[in-house]
Design a protein around this nucleic acid. Structure first.
Lengths: 166, 166
DNA sequence: TAAGATTGACCGATCAATCTTG
DNA sequence: CAAGATTGATCGGTCAATCTTA
């Protein structure tokens, strides 16, 4: 989707350059659903749920305030409220209050959530290797990482918060 | 999302390899929303709508049967029915019957749809250059394309139709 | 009977509005 | 009032069931 398989084009030279974008876009469209399907089949998790478990597992005390978690997994606050509802219903996470502050709600990994994450991580790592890394030479991998980090940093939405100085 | 920023990891060596995947994933997550936002701002189109216009513009007679279009833009048939409803409501496409066959419905680009596509394409090409291609050297672009075509072909869902032989 | 398209139930997201608390 | 979280309306998708036609 979103790419010309080789259609007539008003701008013949740029078209050749754009094949790199096409490969990039289509590789993503091919690999991510594969990872998603494996995660679903082996653990009954969407990639989104896995992502939540990942960030909580990595957080100090395996817990995070709602607004930080929504930032980490790139979802709106409203969306996260409902997502946490569902995951709590599944016993993977639980809400907790923070003592001194009654505004924030913490989301904490349950033991079951942590164990689920540990098992799901194997599936994810295997999938990434199998569907992506194993098809790249060491040189390609190095080039790709360097180039795409540059692309990512250039395009990344800037935090509209404090100015970089000060 | 979906990546460890640098968290403790049980498998230190693979973690380094996986940074390439991280860069790939995050670059996609950074660039695609940028393209989407520009398309929305300048033409009021989602990437999905643009994709439909693209495939119809490239098709012979600027028209395609529903089932072929659903395949091209990677959406279910039910999803396409409603998508075409909306786009027809916006005057970008129109349904048409095929003379000899009353089962298939053709989707045809309207003049307005074609003109919209032509203008939107400039935005898309500019965005791809600006957010992606311009950050790559010629060498990187070549390596990236070759590698990611391989990844894409390995992971791509096989057509469960006729066998490749015959 | 199978292919093509549509419909309806559902699901998970966004967005704007609201409630509560610092 | 601003920050944090929740709620309700809406949107666009999937999936399964249905209708029509080759």
């Amino acid at each position: 989707m979103l790419m010309q398989p080789g259609f007539p084009d008003d701008t013949p030279v740029p078209a050749e350059r754009r094949r790199a974008w096409q490969a990039f876009f289509e590789a993503h469209a091919a690999v991510v659903p594969a990872l998603e399907a494996e995660m679903e089949a082996e653990h009954g998790l969407t990639l989104r749920w896995y992502d939540v478990l990942l960030h909580l597992a990595a957080a100090p005390g395996t817990k995070l305030p709602m607004h930080e978690l929504s930032d980490a997994v790139v979802i709106t606050k409203g969306g996260l409220t409902k997502l946490v509802d569902r995951m709590a219903g599944a016993g993977l996470v639980a809400r907790a209050a923070v003592p001194g502050n009654r505004r924030v709600t913490l989301v904490k990994l349950t033991p079951h959530g942590l164990e689920t994450y540990r098992r799901a991580r194997l599936t994810h790592h295997r999938g990434v290797a199998q569907h992506f890394l194993d098809h790249l030479s060491d040189h390609e991998r190095a080039v790709l990482e360097a180039a795409l980090v540059r692309v990512r940093d250039a395009a990344r939405p800037r935090r509209p918060d404090v100015s970089p100085a000060s």
